[in-house]
């Protein structure tokens, strides 16, 4: 039995077609694996660096339900949502939990005139332009769309891949939020005349290069 198996195997190995098929299979799989690996370069989904101050989003967002824009003041206005300046922390913490060693770090920073050096979690490459206001204020998207369930995060981590493919997928699927926005009226009219479904971001040029790259 074993001998027969061995002989068969040897026969198979001797078969040129099969041998080359196996080699090709191996090469293809290896190529796929390395390509996948290469595509993964620079993708940091799940990145959750330790921050200089153990600030808990779970507590502030999840438990106390503080609005994101209370601290991230730029989120509806401009490109950056912004990391809160220490004086925003002080709005509450000049009275609340002053004794906590973590909050004392803010006091030390203020006293020494030494800004707090947070570690950036969400990094887009310099060649991509992303504007928060377009997505939050105009598009009406919820922060969790891109940042995940922040309210459950003790330490903030990058929830989505933030790759271009991920951006594009969303632009293909998302309906344009044109309600009560005179900017889109003309486009909406044109769209309803020619197409059946709702107007997607893609339909108004949301996949064009120079929307994000310039």
């Amino acid at each position: 039995m074993a001998d027969r198996f061995k002989a068969n195997l040897q026969g198979l190995a001797a078969n040129k077609t099969i041998r080359s098929a196996v080699i090709w299979m191996f090469i293809l799989l290896a190529t796929k694996a390395s390509l996948d690996g290469l595509y993964g370069i620079g993708v940091h989904q799940g990145y959750a660096p330790e921050q200089p101050i153990a600030f808990s989003h779970k507590l502030h967002v999840g438990e106390y339900e503080i609005n994101c824009a209370y601290c991230h003041t730029g989120v509806y206005k401009g490109k950056q949502a912004g990391i809160p300046s220490a004086n925003i922390c002080m709005n509450c913490h000049n009275a609340i939990k002053r004794e906590s060693p973590e909050i004392q770090k803010i006091y030390t920073a203020l006293e020494n005139d030494q800004p707090i050096e947070w570690i950036r979690v969400h990094n887009l490459p310099d060649l991509a332009y992303f504007n928060h206001a377009q997505h939050t204020n105009v598009g009406g998207l919820d922060c969790t769309n891109c940042h995940g369930e922040i309210s459950n995060m003790e330490v903030v981590q990058q929830a989505k891949s933030l790759t271009m493919g991920w951006c594009i997928d969303c632009h293909r699927e998302t309906n344009v939020n044109g309600k009560d926005n005179a900017y889109y009226d003309q486009l909406m009219d044109a769209h309803t005349k020619t197409a059946a479904g709702p107007m997607k971001v893609e339909d108004i040029g949301g996949l064009e290069c120079a929307r994000c790259h310039y």
């Binding site: 660096p49 003041t73 912004g82 990391i83 809160p84 300046s85 220490a86 004086n87 925003i88 920073a109 203020l110 005139d113 030494q114 800004p115 707090i116 050096e117 947070w118 570690i119 950036r120 990094n123």
Partner: peptide, 10 residues
């Protein structure tokens, strides 16, 4: 590791 450094007093 890229740092993001806010104002102390914006």
């Amino acid at each position: 590791v890229r740092k993001t450094i806010p104002y102390l007093n914006k």
